[in-house]
Design a protein around this nucleic acid. Structure first.
Lengths: 336, 336
DNA sequence: TTGAAAGCGCTAACAA
DNA sequence: TTGTTAGCGCTTTCAA
């Protein structure tokens, strides 16, 4: 026989409610889930008991039985990079109001961490996953039995929500060009982050076609080293009069460095960022950039995921959002 | 009798492992948990079966039985505010390597959301909570039976990890003073966010004591409206030659506006922020600020929480981290 | 319209 | 050293 002292503050269970209401646990279950029959009178009694005891169903027990929780896994590369919080917030706000909670993890773009999270998500009966992970990594997830939507990334095999990187890259290039830059340096993000690389390629193509001089500088996407990259840029390519940054962090760093060494923005050098993180509007002299609708992307990914969870058989959807050029003070007024 | 078709992709259970290894589920449980006896030979057989089947225990079942999960709840006001991601990352990194996962939620400083999250955390058998919530709200949590540590906030009744706000406020005031500002405007954060208000009070006291002219302007802490506040500042108090901002976001906005209207930084006006978010180093001309060790705070909160969970009877600890002045280009060199 | 009971996957008490 | 089994709190089948 098995015995255990009850902890002093044991939570109210469905049993307690049943006893209080003078009905069986099955009946309580039926009324709180609105499943099956329940006489109006019993319903009322049960609901009263629920209220009186402030009963909250144990989600773990539910989850065990139904093999489905109200939990959703979210994997983002690095919440510390200001682009991702907006994504996360979009996801969380949508999920929250649908009654789901999110288990969150940073992957640092590392396959191992991604897989580790996916494993523990499964172990916790998560009903869906939203992940911002790389192409090669995500292919291993294609056969995952639980609904997954890719966010800010896309591959053929999986539903995804992302912004049009090529359009963004092109746009950035066109805008500097229109505004008269003649020697343009592209600060290129890491090749393994495919979407970031796509921006580069699109920009590069437009610039090349225009016959303008173009330099390429490699950089990563985080705060780490952005300053050094900016310094390097003007040392290596002092004639640069236009910069296309792989993201706004790098863009801001370049704005800083340019001004520090006495270049006028935008007269001497124009800078265009990418992402449109909140701070870009606030820095001096205002960073022109390519706006990605991050919050909307997050919310949309959540929406699609919920639909998949609810079995709405939408095909393998690839939801591509448009980006736009946000003109601020780091680029010249057109025609000047 | 009860019957259900097995879903095609049912996960491996302990039963499958037991069968594969030719032992009972109890034995499997013992070896994977390293609890109770197990002959070395059986151990090996079981472990082989585990590997062969790639068995991962169902955490939900575990959680139901033990009334304890490997989940920890994290409540932060708004992940979109750059101060909080650093906190979150500190928490997540520590917890992750201890084998815990985090359920995350934004509260927007709203009691209702906070309580809602706490409820669902409980429903999910979370073993601990880290929360950045307000004094009045957190008092309702004092009797919570599950371990909780306050992060970036503090009250007497609960363990907490936070940075020394008074020191920070004082430091900021002393530094502008030392550097010669004569009319200082303090941009004050919302009164209901106690730590932010403490900064203000400490600064104010120092400034008053110094007999310098001080103006006060109210602001919130988010990107929202920061620009307008900055504009208002120089309209209302055009003689301002020193600004103490409630946080770096506001600080950056002020830097921007000051330069936009032709003020030289730091000659005409000095600006000191608060937080030392990553971007502050990158903006032009570099925002001097009060550094809060956000990442460390998050990690420390996680560490303390884990200790509490493991019953290490540390008292009701209040862990106060020191802040420091980070001198960049928005303040003058001392003595000039 | 209701209740009894099985069982989700696991751990731990107890017997063997 | 190992196996049998109760039971964590819930939902659902089935019988009443």
């Amino acid at each position: 026989m098995f015995h255990r002292w009850r902890l002093s503050d044991l939570a109210i269970t469905i049993r307690d409610v049943a006893k209080e209401a003078g009905v069986s646990v099955a009946t309580v279950s039926r009324v709180i889930n609105d499943s099956g029959y329940a006489h109006e009178d019993t319903r009322k009694v049960v609901l009263e008991a629920v209220n009186k005891l402030n009963y909250k169903p144990n989600e773990v027990a539910r989850s065990l039985f139904k093999r489905k929780s109200k939990l959703i896994g979210l994997i983002l590369p690095d919440i510390t990079n200001p682009f991702f919080p907006a994504l996360a917030r979009g996801v969380e706000d949508y999920l929250q109001k649908e009654g789901y909670r999110v288990i969150f993890g940073n992957s640092d773009e590392q396959l191992e961490k991604e897989m580790d999270y996916v494993d523990t998500f499964k172990q916790n009966n998560v009903v869906g996953i939203i992940a911002s992970i790389n192409e090669t990594d995500s292919e291993m997830l294609s056969e995952l039995s639980i609904p997954l939507v890719l966010l800010d990334r896309t591959i053929e095999a999986l539903p995804s929500v992302y912004a049009d990187q090529e359009q963004g890259g092109r746009l950035a290039a066109e805008k500097v060009l229109e505004r008269g830059s003649k020697e343009i340096t592209i600060v290129r993000g890491p090749k393994n982050v495919k979407n970031v690389y796509q921006r580069f390629e699109a920009s590069y193509e437009v610039l090349k076609e225009a016959g303008v001089k173009v330099n390429i500088l490699d950089s990563n996407l985080s705060f780490n080293g952005a300053k050094e990259r900016a310094i390097e840029l003007f040392q290596k390519y002092p004639q640069t009069d236009g910069v296309l940054a792989c993201n706004d962090i790098v863009g801001v760093a370049i704005l800083n460095e340019a001004q520090r060494i006495g270049k006028r923005i935008p007269e001497d050098v124009q800078v265009i960022g990418f992402d449109d993180i909140s701070i870009s509007e606030l820095v001096y002299p205002g960073l022109s950039t390519i706006h990605q609708p991050a919050y909307e992307m997050g919310a949309k990914a959540a929406e699609i995921l919920i639909k998949k969870i609810n079995q709405e058989k939408l095909l393998n959807i690839h939801y591509k959002l448009a980006v736009s050029f946000v003109e601020r003070k780091s680029t010249r007024k057109i025609g000047k």
